[in-house]
């Protein structure tokens, strides 16, 4: 439906296309459903759970001793903003699985975070360099309001899948909804298919 007299402002010229329904944002808006957790890095750890067993646990120090992966990428938030050419560093999920000598299971993964947030993602979307545990943004420690000290980062999906304040990944055979998915947000969340809400 055409809106008469609407032409849009198209503020920035994208260096490459943005997904449907998105606009370019120069800043870095903060979105979260609750307060920013107060995370003590000295006791922080991250674990991977498979079939009810903890298959690997990493401290802040051991995470940083692993091979580090850089990502240069665009990010897309379901609240309609996108940001191009962002730079992240962290540890690939592939690297963690290799470190724990785990062969990656099929199926799905639930991410658990400080503050109680959860989100689900197919396991294959974390593999082959597609998912990292990010701790650095634009060469600085990831700010707490953006998910620091460590957030899951899966930029090919809407940003709510890149769970802030990540503490655990649980592999599961069947898909289950996480926090926003239970409120009607899409189970997968591909920005290029505009999978914002259930049924999209």
């Amino acid at each position: 439906m055409i809106n008469d007299n609407f032409f849009g402002r198209r503020r920035s010229t994208p260096t490459r296309p943005v997904p449907p329904g998105q606009y370019l944002e120069d800043g870095f808006p903060v979105l979260s459903a609750g307060p920013t957790p107060r995370v003590d890095i000295s006791t922080w750890d991250f674990s991977i759970e498979i079939a009810g067993e903890i298959a690997g646990t990493w401290s802040w120090k051991s995470l940083n001793s692993l091979e580090q992966t850089d990502m240069h990428t665009d990010i897309h938030c379901v609240t309609k903003w996108s940001k191009q050419d962002t730079n992240w560093r962290g540890v690939a999920i592939d690297t963690l699985l290799a470190d724990a000598q785990i062969s990656p299971p099929d199926g799905y993964v639930m991410a658990y975070c400080d503050g109680g947030y959860t989100t689900n993602v197919p396991a294959k979307d974390l593999m082959d360099g597609k998912g990292i545990l990010a701790h650095t943004y634009e060469n600085e420690p990831l700010p707490a309001e953006h998910g620091g000290p460590v957030r899951l980062f899966i930029p090919h999906l809407y940003l709510w899948k890149s769970a802030k304040w990540i503490r655990r990944l649980r592999f599961m055979e069947k898909d289950e909804p996480g926090f926003w998915e239970g409120y009607g947000y899409h189970m997968y969340g591909d920005p290029w298919l505009e999978q914002r809400y259930t049924g999209d």
Binding site: M1, F6, G21
Partner: peptide, 16 residues
């Protein structure tokens, strides 16, 4: 609610 506006050339903008 999400709101969507469409320009005559097909350009769209959405906001919540």
């Amino acid at each position: 609610y999400d709101v969507r506006l469409t320009a005559p050339d097909g350009y769209q903008a959405q906001r919540s």
